[in-house]
Design a protein around this nucleic acid. Structure first.
Lengths: 119, 119
DNA sequence: ACGCTATACATAGAAAGGCGATACAGCAAG
DNA sequence: CTTGCTGTATCGCCTTTCTATGTATAGCGT
């Protein structure tokens, strides 16, 4: 079993994951990275070189907004969802569900060939 | 709702889809394209410029093997899974399940925020 | 016979995003 | 003071999908 998901799997759903985490409340880059790592039991280890450009892109698209905060001890850049980001999250989640269904319908007959461990 | 999945969603799972179709029996490029389109209710429309290089890559990796066949009327290049391809399919499917689970655990709390249409 | 469409395989170049490497700075512990 | 974690950031590389294009044949209507 891979101890980590590859770049290609992440692609296309990493936005969705980040928006999901942001939906639970404001956070900053480093904490977001830890959240993803923890929530996935170490399987999603998005790199800083991935995360920061992604956050900048989401912000440029108006899906999140940021502000620098120093009162919390260290200088951090906090991000939070905008209304547009919230709508995007909903539509991305819906599209994701459709997509997963689509793959499952292709995969289910294949699974029949092998001993299926009960989940 | 998008009438077609974007490149980023496909990425990383298109291999899996192709291997899944191949698992049901030998096929050739054009037919594979139709199979994907049909099985996904028009949502996966992988282009020829995507599919053929992908097939060449899978063959170079020893996951599938090909032979030209003319007796079936038109000249076609038939592909079939190798033993290695079969093993790869199993592991990719397992990884996919893990991945989907991982996203779901991030998405479920978010879904609570909005009226969820029963599927 | 001719043109049109669908079938069938293939390659080239562009676009996009994740990755590793690297950088820099603050702070804490030894 | 040196090591290590925290925290943000950028750069070039790599991979994969896309569009556009090229080639060729079969079948059909006119």
């Amino acid at each position: 079993m891979a101890d980590r998901f590859g770049p290609d799997l992440l692609r296309g759903s990493l936005d969705l994951m980040v928006l999901s985490v942001l939906a639970k409340g404001p956070t900053y880059g480093y904490q977001l990275q830890q959240s993803l790592r923890d929530a996935s039991r170490e399987q999603v280890q998005a790199q800083a070189g991935t995360l920061y450009p992604l956050l900048h892109r989401l912000e440029a698209d108006g899906l999140i907004q940021s502000r620098w905060e120093e009162s919390t001890g260290r200088k951090r850049k906090w991000y939070e969802l905008t209304a547009a980001g919230d709508r995007r999250l909903s539509s991305q989640a819906a599209e994701w569900d459709l997509y997963v269904d689509c793959i499952r319908s292709l995969l289910d007959p294949v699974r029949g060939r092998m001993p299926k461990p009960a989940v």
